[in-house]
């Protein structure tokens, strides 16, 4: 037998799992193979060493507790022990619950399910009352057009009012300019008239002065 196979027998022998026949084979091999013999002794020492390592206490308190689950039969047994008013109350509650459950409606709309529940009948809603997605789109478009028209009209009216206001402003400016020109003309006329009068007066004064000077020089 090869040494590789003897290793397996060594393991069996170390842990007392070897048969008598295999033990005989192992012993025969060990007598003739010094390598295996040394290895076997070394493994025996190792096993002996490992045996000295003792178990330790976990020091953990693990306790599992049963969750209280009420079975249907237990529930019925409990019900039997209830008083009449309690039983009646429970029956009414169960009835109301059933009514609510049976009155549950499921509706599919807008890609999802809608649940409705209640004690009494739901108000049935005519599907025609619901705005479809198309209707909503149409409404949104019309609304947009209306708002656009209002804005446009408002802009137009604003533009007209601005133009009228500008015309009035220009007219007023023109009137002011003409008035200013008239005032300036009048002022110039008045100035010319005053100047002419002062010139005449100066002429007259000079004439009188010349006459006086002439009279004085003729008298000498």
């Amino acid at each position: 037998m090869k040494c590789e196979d003897i290793r397996l027998l060594m393991m069996e022998a170390l842990y007392d799992e070897i048969s008598a026949a295999d033990m005989q084979i192992l012993n025969t091999h060990l007598e003739s193979c010094s390598g295996c013999r040394q290895k076997y002794v070394a493994l025996q020492v190792t096993v002996h060493t490992l045996e000295k390592w003792e178990d330790v206490e976990p020091r953990v308190n693990l306790t599992f507790v049963k969750q209280p689950v009420v079975r249907f039969s237990e529930f019925i047994e409990r019900l039997k022990s209830w008083t009449l008013p309690a039983r009646l109350g429970a029956a009414v509650a169960a009835l109301l619950l059933l009514l609510a459950l049976f009155n549950t409606s499921i509706r599919f709309s807008d890609g999802g399910f809608a649940f409705e529940t209640g004690l009494f009948n739901h108000k049935r809603i005519d599907p025609a009352d619901f705005a479809t997605k198309f209707d909503l789109e149409q409404l949104r478009r019309e609304n947009y057009q209306l708002v656009s028209a209002v804005i446009e009209e408002y802009d137009k009216r604003n533009r007209i009012e601005t133009a009228v206001m500008l015309d009035q402003f220009y007219d007023e400016l023109e009137r002011q300019r003409k008035e200013d020109l008239r005032l300036v003309g009048a002022a110039v006329d008045h100035l010319q008239y005053g100047t002419a009068q002062r010139l005449e007066q100066t002429d007259r004064t000079l004439g009188t002065l010349i006459e006086y000077i002439s009279a004085q020089s003729g008298g000498r």
Binding site: R7, L8, M10, M11, E12, L14, K39, A42, L43, V45, T46, V47, T49, L50
Partner: peptide, 16 residues
């Protein structure tokens, strides 16, 4: 399993 046991013990012996 036996083979692994052998090599395990042998490795432990070497380590020690």
């Amino acid at each position: 399993i036996k083979s692994r046991m052998y090599y395990g013990l042998d490795a432990l012996h070497s380590v020690l």
